[in-house]
Design a protein around this nucleic acid. Structure first.
Lengths: 249, 249
DNA sequence: GCATTATTTTTTCCATGAGAATATTCCTGC
DNA sequence: GCAGGAATATTCTCATGGAAAAAATAATGC
C-alpha cells in the first residue's frame, strides 16, 4: 500500500460529528490530537519508546500530516515525545536525572498547592474533592486497573484546581504526565494501589485546616509513589533491549 | 508584491552561517525561530498584541512557512502567542487573572528554588552568581535600558540553574517570559531599576547559609516588581484601543 | 457627503508532491 | 549457512499551490 489517504475533505471516522457546524473547524482537531495522545501516554496505553506513525494519526483524524506534525511538535516541547532527525517521533523515555528532577519538582509543587488550597478553597469545594475520593474507593474495589490510575491522577489535578491558580495547575499537570512515563519505565513493585486512603486523609486534614498535617501526608503519599521506583544508575538502562538480553544469559 | 520568497535553498540573511556544515540542519532553524521570538518578547521588543507575519519570519530565516508555523504553534502553547482562527498570530496579552496567577506562581517557585540552591549550590557557584551581580551593577551605571532588563532577568534564571533541577528552571523561565508581557502591559512607574542591589543582598544571604533571610529578601524583591504594576480591574483594559479613546473625551 | 455593498488584496490554513534519510529485504559470493 | 552489499520500500521533512477567510479598498446609491 503506497500512500492513499482521504480523497475529499472528510473521511474522519471519529466521534461527535453529529452537528458538524462550521465545517469541522480544523484547529481544535489539532488540540484533539494533542489531548488524545497525552491521555494515551498518561494512562500508559502508549509506552515509552513507542514509535508514533504520523500517517496513521493523520488518517485516523482525517487530516493531513501537516496538522499532525504541528501537534507532535507541541507534545515534543512538553517532553512527552522525542523527535529524532529523519528517524521519526517516539514516546519519550525520561532518564534517571530527569526522573529525579520531576519527582522533586512535584513534591515542591504539591506543597505549594496545598498552601494555596488552604488559603482559598471553600468548604463545599473540599466536599466535592472528598466525593472524588469516595469514587476512588469504589473503583478500587471493583474496577479495572486503568480507571484506577486515571482517577488517582485526577485527584491531584482537581486539588490543584482548588488552589485557584491556573498556572500552577498547568505546571503540575505537565509534571504528572511526564511522571507517568517515568513510572512506566522504572516502576518495579506494582503494589496494590492504596492511594485512595492517602487522598482521603489529605482531604480530612484540609478540612481541619491543618496545613502542616496535610503537607506531611502529601509528602508521605508522594514518597510512597517514588518508593515503587528504582532509580539507581545501574537499573536505568535495564529496560534497554541489550540489557534485557543480559538477564537471560 | 505577490508572494516571492527564496528561490533556492538559502537566502538566509542570518548570522553564524560561517561553517554551514550539514547543509543548514533545518530542525534547529525551528528552534532558532522559537528562541529568537521568545527573546524578542522577553526584552520587550515585541509588544503584546503585535501581529506576527509568518511570511516575514519565513523569509527572514530562509525557510518555508510550514516550519515557521510549527514554531509559532509551540510558542502558542507556551502562552507567549495567541492564534486567532483565520486572523493570524499575535503576541499574547495576558489578562489580570493570568497576571496574578503568574506573579503568585513566581513567588512560590522562587522560594522553592532558594531551598534547592541552599541544599546543593557550591561556594564557587555562588561566587559566579555574585559576579553576575557585579556585571549588573556595572551595566546599571552606564548601559542601555535593554541590557539592564535582560541581565536582571538572567539573574533569576542562573539562580534557578544553581538549584540543579532542570524542570524547575524551565518552569521559572516560562513564567518569567510571560511576566515580561505582563510588565509591558501593566507597568506604570518605570522606576530606576534597583534590582541589582536586591540581587546582591540575596547572594550574600545565600553565602551566609541563611535560607529564611534569602527568601525574605526574594519576597521583598518580587513584591517590589509587582508594585510597579496596577492590576485593578478598571485599569486592565486601559490598554485596549477603545478605552484609550475614553481618556480623551 | 455618508453609508452600504462589491471587488481586490492580503494572509492564514491545509493538503499534497517531491526529495532525503533510514530501515528492510533480497541477492550474490564465499 | 552466512556476511556483505545492492535494491526496494517506508517514513520523515519541507516547500509549494490553492482554497477560504478577513481586511482593505473602491464603487455605487441615496
Amino acid at each position: 500500500m503506497k500512500r492513499t489517504r482521504r480523497q475529499s475533505a472528510k473521511a474522519a471516522p471519529n466521534a461527535s460529528n453529529t452537528a458538524d457546524t462550521a465545517e469541522t473547524n480544523n484547529d481544535d482537531v489539532s488540540e484533539r490530537i494533542r489531548t488524545t495522545l497525552a491521555a494515551a501516554i498518561g494512562e500508559g496505553a502508549l509506552k515509552p519508546g513507542t514509535k508514533i506513525l504520523e500517517d496513521a494519526i493523520a488518517e485516523h483524524f482525517g487530516v493531513s500530516r501537516t496538522v499532525v506534525r504541528g501537534a507532535l511538535g507541541v507534545l515534543e516541547s512538553d517532553h512527552l515525545l522525542e523527535r529524532k532527525k529523519n528517524r521519526g517521533t517516539f514516546v519519550a523515555e525520561p532518564g534517571i536525572e530527569e526522573a529525579r528532577a520531576l519527582f522533586e519538582s512535584r513534591r515542591k509543587l504539591e506543597r505549594v498547592i496545598l498552601e494555596l488550597v488552604m488559603d482559598r478553597a471553600e468548604a463545599e469545594q473540599l466536599d466535592a474533592l472528598e466525593k472524588l475520593t469516595d469514587e476512588e474507593e469504589h473503583i478500587h474495589h471493583h474496577g479495572d486497573e486503568k480507571s484506577k490510575t486515571v482517577l488517582s491522577g485526577k485527584f491531584h489535578i482537581v486539588l490543584a484546581e482548588l488552589g485557584g491558580n491556573a498556572v500552577m495547575t498547568e505546571m503540575l499537570s505537565k509534571i504528572v504526565a511526564r511522571l507517568s512515563l517515568v513510572m512506566a519505565l522504572y516502576e518495579e513493585e506494582k503494589q496494590d494501589d492504596c492511594g485512595a486512603d492517602h487522598h482521603r486523609l489529605i482531604v480530612t486534614a484540609l478540612k481541619a485546616k491543618d496545613l502542616v498535617k496535610a503537607q506531611q501526608l502529601m509528602d508521605h503519599h508522594l514518597a510512597d509513589i517514588e518508593g515503587r521506583v528504582r532509580l539507581t544508575e545501574g537499573q536505568g538502562d535495564r529496560h534497554t533491549f541489550m540489557a534485557v538480553l543480559e538477564n537471560f544469559s
